[in-house]
């Protein structure tokens, strides 16, 4: 395990709620069963109250684009450049994803976006697009 990226490594235990939701076409966030803090990315213990019990809260999937880049590393680029975005969900959570079906010259910081579930390779991932832009 590489220490520089340990914090972004997914734990099959701590993060199961989220990916089960994605498989069912829903954006489910971890909400502390005791104090209702929403924790994203999830963690095994609530940093506010110490609880290890979690409920889920279904996100509206709506939010605004906080920041973006084009992922196209010169030495090993994707076949098509991908736009990586930070989305501020209306639930108060910041989320890393890709922008789907939006042209580069249409991207604006703070533009409204909503979730769409798309097959990427052989995995469904939650991506974001303009409201009503999911296919």
């Amino acid at each position: 395990m590489e220490p520089m990226t340990t914090a972004s490594t997914v734990s099959p235990w701590d993060d199961a709620i989220f990916w089960e939701g994605v498989d069912g076409g829903r954006l489910l966030l971890a909400r502390c069963a005791r104090c209702s803090r929403i924790q994203h990315p999830p963690s095994p213990m609530c940093p506010s109250c110490g609880s290890v019990s979690w409920d889920v809260q279904e996100s509206s999937g709506k939010g605004r684009l906080h920041s973006w880049i084009v992922s196209h590393h010169p030495s090993r680029p994707d076949a098509e450049p991908r736009v990586v975005v930070l989305v501020d969900l209306d639930d108060g959570v910041r989320f890393v994803s890709n922008l789907h079906n939006v042209q580069l010259d249409e991207i604006q910081v703070d533009m409204p976006v909503e979730v769409t579930f798309q097959l990427v390779g052989d995995t469904v991932l939650p991506l974001f697009t303009r409201p009503g832009g999911g296919t």
Partner: peptide, 9 residues
């Protein structure tokens, strides 16, 4: 394929 950051490029 599934994580919080690298899955998205």
């Amino acid at each position: 394929t599934r994580d919080w950051h690298r899955a998205y490029g």
